[in-house]
């Protein structure tokens, strides 16, 4: 297993919620019609005409304390290299305990019956490529890298910029960060 802690950093200032990331993921991972592993949350706060907006490209947070992995009775959900949370289809019974456990509703049951979710495109990352959503993003909103490497782009962004994570109170220590 390679060391490191993979993370994604999402620059909400740049994101235009075009959903290119969603479609690139679907194409790269050949997902069934009607399913997605990443998605856009568009939030608008305030009352006309005093409004402010935030767009977030969201996906599995690959939590450091992943409740889904804890909930899995068979070991199908597991922590793979770089802290990436994966599901091994051949071990999954489709019991959905992990889906109940996930604070982010990032998992779904495939038409074949096993649970699936974002893999951080680990198959690409292991070849030295970036995840499909990162490479397609026209606004360069998405950054991916190893947080354990202080010289990585993601590590530097988290030092230089203000950021937040979704629902830190979940206690799961999510690894998708949102620059604000």
């Amino acid at each position: 297993m390679s060391a490191g802690r993979y993370a994604m950093v999402v620059d909400t200032r740049l994101c235009v919620a075009c959903k290119a990331c969603v479609l690139a993921c679907k194409a790269e991972n050949n997902l069934a019609e009607g399913y997605c592993r990443d998605w856009l949350v568009e939030e608008v706060h305030g009352e006309f005409p005093k409004l402010r907006a935030e767009n977030r490209s969201e996906r599995c947070n690959h939590c450091s304390e992943a409740p889904c992995v804890d909930a899995c009775p068979t070991g199908a959900s597991h922590i793979a290299g770089g802290g990436v949370v994966l599901v091994t289809p051949d071990k999954c019974t489709g019991c959905k305990a992990c889906m109940a456990a996930c604070p982010y509703d990032a998992r779904y049951l495939t038409p074949e019956g096993f649970v699936d979710k974002c893999t951080f495109c680990l198959h690409r990352v292991q070849r030295g490529e970036q995840p499909a959503c990162v490479t397609v993003c026209p606004t360069r909103t998405l950054h991916f890298g190893d947080l354990d490497d202080p010289t990585s782009e993601v590590a530097r962004l988290l030092v230089d910029r203000k950021w937040k994570v979704n629902h830190p109170e979940s206690g799961a220590h999510p690894n998708v960060y949102f620059l604000v």
Partner: peptide
């Protein structure tokens, strides 16, 4: 009947996951 991947039900009994209530239960 609730399982999504019924043919893999035996997987419950190839692992014991102490953090998983589902595993304890099975």
């Amino acid at each position: 009947l609730d399982l999504g991947h019924k043919l893999y039900v035996w997987r419950f009994y190839l692992a014991f996951r102490p953090t998983s209530p589902m595993s304890w239960g099975s």
